[in-house]
Amino acid sequence: VTLFVASYDYEARTEDDLSFHKGEKFQILNSSEGDWWEARSLTTGETGYIPSNYVAPV
């Protein structure tokens, strides 16, 4: 399981994006799509795309 933590807050801009807060942890589901990764929030359980430059490895 690949875990990352949010370095910043992010507000979703499309329905496919995932909003999150600094400190929130994610399981990365797919990182092969470039700068936007499909992730599941371990806080909310929601799945969506997050900007990879807003998160760091745990």
Score class of each variant (00 low, 15 high):
V1L: 13
V1R: 11
V1F: 14
V1D: 12
V1Y: 14
T2L: 14
T2R: 12
T2H: 11
T2V: 13
T2Y: 12
T2C: 15
T2F: 11
L3P: 04
L3K: 04
L3T: 08
L3W: 11
L3F: 12
F4R: 03
F4V: 10
F4Q: 03
F4T: 03
V5S: 05
V5F: 06
V5R: 06
V5I: 12
V5G: 03
V5W: 06
V5E: 09
A6C: 06
A6M: 01
A6L: 01
A6Q: 00
A6W: 03
S7Y: 13
S7P: 04
S7V: 15
Y8V: 09
Y8W: 12
Y8A: 12
D9C: 12
D9F: 05
D9T: 07
D9A: 08
Y10S: 01
Y10E: 00
E11C: 14
E11L: 11
E11R: 09
A12K: 08
A12Y: 03
A12P: 04
A12I: 01
R13M: 11
R13A: 10
T14P: 02
T14N: 14
T14L: 09
T14K: 13
E15W: 09
E15P: 13
E15H: 11
E15T: 12
E15F: 10
D16K: 15
D16F: 15
D16I: 13
D16C: 15
D17K: 15
D17C: 15
D17T: 15
D17Y: 14
D17L: 10
D17W: 12
D17H: 15
L18R: 01
L18P: 00
L18Q: 02
L18T: 02
S19M: 03
S19N: 06
S19W: 03
F20P: 00
F20W: 01
F20L: 05
H21R: 14
H21V: 14
H21Q: 13
H21A: 11
K22H: 05
K22N: 04
K22C: 07
K22G: 04
G23T: 02
E24P: 00
K25Y: 15
K25H: 11
K25M: 15
K25F: 15
K25L: 15
F26I: 04
F26Q: 00
F26C: 04
F26A: 00
Q27F: 13
Q27W: 14
Q27P: 00
I28R: 03
I28V: 09
I28W: 02
I28G: 00
I28Q: 01
I28L: 06
L29G: 02
L29Y: 06
L29M: 08
L29H: 04
L29I: 11
N30F: 07
N30S: 10
N30D: 11
N30C: 09
N30E: 07
N30M: 07
S31K: 13
S31P: 09
S31R: 13
S31T: 12
S31Q: 13
S31C: 15
S32M: 12
S32E: 10
S32C: 12
S32N: 11
S32L: 11
E33P: 10
E33V: 10
E33G: 14
E33N: 15
E33F: 12
E33A: 13
E33H: 14
E33T: 12
E33R: 15
G34L: 11
G34W: 09
G34T: 12
D35H: 10
D35F: 14
D35E: 12
D35Y: 14
D35A: 10
W36C: 08
W36P: 04
W36H: 06
W36R: 14
W36L: 07
W37H: 03
W37V: 05
W37F: 07
W37D: 01
W37T: 02
E38L: 15
E38N: 07
E38C: 15
E38S: 07
E38I: 15
E38K: 13
E38H: 14
A39M: 05
A39E: 01
A39C: 05
A39T: 01
A39G: 05
A39N: 00
R40T: 10
R40L: 11
R40K: 11
R40F: 09
R40C: 08
R40M: 12
R40N: 03
S41Y: 02
S41N: 12
S41R: 12
S41P: 01
S41V: 05
S41I: 06
L42N: 03
L42F: 07
L42E: 07
L42G: 02
L42S: 04
T43Q: 08
T43Y: 09
T43N: 08
T43H: 10
T43C: 13
T44R: 04
T44I: 01
T44L: 02
T44A: 02
T44H: 04
T44M: 02
T44Y: 02
G45E: 04
G45H: 06
G45W: 06
E46M: 14
E46F: 11
E46R: 15
E46K: 15
E46D: 09
E46A: 12
T47H: 07
T47Q: 09
T47W: 08
T47N: 05
T47M: 09
T47K: 09
G48L: 04
G48R: 02
G48Q: 01
G48Y: 04
G48C: 04
G48K: 02
Y49C: 13
Y49H: 07
Y49T: 07
Y49W: 15
Y49A: 05
Y49I: 09
Y49Q: 08
I50Y: 00
I50C: 03
P51F: 07
P51Y: 08
P51H: 08
P51L: 07
P51N: 09
P51W: 08
S52D: 02
S52Q: 07
S52A: 13
S52H: 07
S52T: 06
S52E: 03
S52K: 14
N53A: 14
N53F: 10
N53Q: 12
N53G: 11
N53M: 12
N53R: 13
N53T: 11
N53V: 09
Y54S: 11
Y54G: 06
Y54N: 04
Y54W: 07
Y54R: 08
V55H: 03
V55P: 02
V55T: 04
V55K: 03
V55R: 02
V55D: 02
V55W: 03
A56E: 14
A56N: 10
P57E: 08
P57V: 08
P57H: 06
P57L: 09
V58E: 10
V58R: 04
